[in-house]
Simulated scan of single mutants.
Amino acid sequence: MEDHESDMLPSAVTFLDDKLCYSGQRCQKIPEALVKLYGPKVQCLDLSYNEIVTLRGLDGFPVLKELVLDNNQLSDTISFPYLPTLQTLSLNKNKILDIQSLLLKIRQNLPNLSYLSLLGNKACPNELSGEENDEEDYQRYRYYVLYHLPNLKFLDSTKVREVERSEARRRGKFMNVIRPRGDGMDEIRLNSDSTGGFTPLPKSMRGPEDHKSAYGKCLYKYSGKNSEGNRFICNSDL
């Protein structure tokens, strides 16, 4: 389905204060009309439940703080513009495989990111991306992500603990889990140390009707029509 034209936007767009929701519209890219009409005013952007394959046009939201891209078709070709104000990025249930490449792009272009969620992508080895994943795989992944993004406060559905952050600094560099690429080879783990303190993740992804936050307690409820969750002002002590 082709992207909606500007004359179709008013009935599909929810814009309140600085929050813009354009979800469940089957668009493959960010409509130019959204950028032109709302870009400079938007701080919270929800584009969940579409078919987005490119973030072209995202640089038209220069003061963006929160970006929800859950349930789209974004892959390892994802490219971010430089967004120094972005604090929250939700990429649940996309098609991202290469965690190393993604983290490099985030470090370069999203320097103030504090909240990141990748549940449901192959790059995030928990039960949502494959039954073969176990708790140790997921904890290694957390150490690896936190080593590269040490300023994160929340990763996926769980708050980052100080002991976890310390462990990530110590050995997170070696914690990437490499999966076979169809050649029948066994999984290669760059570090086989067991870990503790794992907090189980949700056993199923929420649907568009469920607005419960993946990041903890919120001070307001963001209720875009198909948002993956309430977004995203957390308590100051997080």
Rank of each mutant, 00 (worst) to 15 (best):
P125D: 05
P125C: 04
P125N: 04
P125S: 02
P125A: 04
N126C: 15
N126K: 00
N126P: 03
N126Y: 10
N126H: 14
E127I: 15
E127S: 11
E127A: 05
E127H: 12
L128N: 09
L128A: 13
L128M: 13
L128E: 02
S129L: 02
S129M: 02
S129N: 01
S129K: 02
S129T: 04
S129D: 06
G130W: 05
G130L: 08
G130P: 06
G130D: 01
E131S: 13
E131N: 11
E131A: 14
E131F: 12
E131I: 12
E132G: 07
E132S: 09
E132A: 12
N133L: 01
N133Y: 13
N133W: 13
N133E: 02
D134Q: 06
E135Q: 14
E135H: 13
E135R: 13
E135I: 12
E136P: 00
E136M: 11
E136R: 11
E136V: 12
E136Y: 10
D137M: 14
D137Y: 12
D137I: 03
Y138I: 00
Y138M: 04
Q139T: 14
Q139M: 15
R140G: 09
R140A: 14
R140Y: 09
R140E: 01
R140P: 03
R140T: 00
Y141W: 15
Y141E: 10
Y141I: 09
R142C: 15
R142A: 13
R142I: 08
R142D: 09
Y143D: 11
Y143T: 01
Y143C: 13
Y144R: 10
Y144T: 04
Y144S: 03
Y144N: 11
Y144V: 08
V145Q: 01
V145L: 01
V145G: 02
V145P: 06
L146F: 04
Y147V: 03
Y147P: 02
Y147G: 00
Y147E: 08
Y147D: 03
H148Y: 13
H148N: 14
H148T: 00
H148A: 08
L149P: 07
L149Y: 07
P150G: 07
P150N: 07
P150L: 03
P150Q: 06
N151A: 12
L152M: 09
K153D: 01
F154N: 06
F154W: 00
F154I: 14
F154E: 04
F154T: 14
L155V: 05
L155K: 03
L155W: 06
L155I: 10
L155N: 08
L155D: 08
L155T: 07
D156S: 07
D156H: 10
D156G: 08
D156L: 08
D156V: 09
D156K: 06
D156T: 09
